[in-house]
Design a protein around this nucleic acid. Structure first.
Lengths: 194, 194
DNA sequence: GGGTACATGTAATCAGTTACATGATTTA
DNA sequence: TAAATCATGTAACTGATTACATGTACCC
C-alpha cells in the first residue's frame, strides 16, 4: 500500500476519521463545511467516493447499518493511522493554489468596455467585505483560552484556525480591491483633466 | 455555441489571445507563467488542449506553420471576442478557492506527535517569507507610472496586479504562520510551568 | 398527511494531471 | 559537435464535478 496514490482528499478523510472516530460520509461533509470547506471546496460526492477507495487500500474499514438509513460508517485502521502520521512528517512543498475568478476577470478588464474594471471592483468589494465580516463575527464567538491546553488541538481549535486564515485572506482581498477602486478613480480623474 | 461550457481555462485562453493576438500554446504558457501562474497553476498540457476545443466551438481559428517547428497559431474570432465580452459583464459569484496543503497538514497536527505543529510551522514560514520577498522585489522592478494611461491596461499592468495580489496574500500567510509559531511557543512555555 | 429540508447515495462526463516522446536552438 | 535547454505536442488516466435519484425525518 504505497502512499503515493493518496491525494489531499485522502488525507482530509483520513484525518477527520482519525480525529472524530467512526464517521459517515455525511459527517465528513458537515465537518468540512464548517471548516476548511470555506475556502477549499470538497463536493459531497467526493466524500462519498473516497472512503470506499481507502477501504480498498486497507486504510479504513466499513460497517454498514442494517436498518433505517443504512449508513456506511468508516473507521481508521492502524495502516491508515500510519499513513496519516507519515504524511504529517513529510514536508509539503506543494504551492498554494489561489483560484479567484474575480481576479481572472479583472486581468482581462482591458478587453471590455472602459468601465469594466470599475464594474468588477464594485462587485467584488462587497463580496469580500461580507465574507470578512462573517469570519470576524465567527472569530468573536470562538472558544476561550481553554483550547490551548498542552498540545491537544480540539476540533474547535481547528475551526478557529480556518477562521483565522479566512480573516487574513479576506483582509488581503479587501485591501486589493480597494486599491483597484482607487486606481480606477484616479484614472477617471486624470481623464477628466485631459 | 452556448457559452456555459466554457471554463476558467477557456476564458484565460480567450483573454490572452484577444490581448496578444495570434499566439501559440507556448506563448500562452509563457504569459501564464509570468503572471497568474504564480498562484493558479495551468499545466502546459491544458494550454495545448484548450485552443483546439475553442476552435471546434468557433471561438478561435488555427493556422499552422508549414516549416520548422510547425507551430499552431491561434487567433480569436468575433464569436470568441463576443463570448469574452459577455463573460466580463457577467458578475462572477463563484468563491475563491484557497488550496494550501500546508494548512491541511496543520489542521491535522493533533494527530501527529507533540511537536508536529511546530515542525510544520517552522517549515512553512520560510517558504512564505521567500515568496513574499520575491514578489516584493518584482514589485520594485515594476513599471513606472506610464502604465496608468487613460483606461488602457497593458500586459505590464496586468503583471503588476498579479504581483500585488501575491504580495498581499503572502503577507497574510506569513502573519498566519507567525501566529502559529507564537502559539506553539506559548504552549511550550505553559507546559514547562506545569 | 402533505410539504420541505435533510440525508444518502450512484453514474456519467469532463477537466486536469502525469507521463511519454521528440524536434529545434543555443551554448560550451 | 555534443550537451543542455527550450519548445512542442500527444495519449492515457484519474480525480473532480454535475446531474440524477431516492429515502427519511421533521414541521405545519
Amino acid at each position: 500500500m504505497s502512499t503515493d496514490q493518496l491525494s489531499s482528499t485522502s488525507y482530509l478523510v483520513l484525518g477527520l476519521i482519525a480525529r472524530e472516530g467512526a464517521s459517515t460520509p455525511y459527517d465528513l461533509k458537515r465537518h468540512v463545511a464548517a471548516t476548511i470547506g470555506n475556502f477549499w471546496s470538497f463536493p459531497h460526492a467526493l466524500l462519498y467516493k473516497e472512503p470506499p477507495r481507502l477501504v480498498d487500500l486497507g486504510l479504513l474499514t466499513e460497517v454498514r447499518e442494517l436498518d433505517g438509513r443504512r449508513r456506511r460508517l468508516f473507521t481508521i485502521t492502524s495502516a491508515g493511522a500510519g499513513a496519516l502520521q507519515a504524511w504529517l512528517e513529510r514536508p509539503s512543498w506543494e504551492a498554494t493554489e489561489l483560484r479567484d475568478p474575480g481576479l481572472l476577470q479583472l486581468f482581462f478588464a482591458d478587453q471590455g468596455s472602459s468601465d469594466t474594471q470599475g464594474d468588477i471592483a464594485r462587485e467584488q468589494l462587497p463580496i469580500h467585505r461580507a465574507k470578512l465580516s462573517a469570519y470576524e463575527t465567527e472569530e468573536q464567538l470562538g472558544p476561550g483560552p481553554e483550547g490551548a491546553r498542552s498540545g491537544h488541538l480540539t476540533l474547535e481549535h481547528w475551526r478557529g484556525q480556518t477562521v483565522r486564515m479566512g480573516v487574513l485572506y479576506e483582509r488581503a482581498a479587501v485591501e486589493f480591491w480597494e486599491g483597484v477602486t482607487a486606481d480606477v478613480a484616479a484614472g477617471e480623474a486624470a481623464a477628466a483633466l485631459a
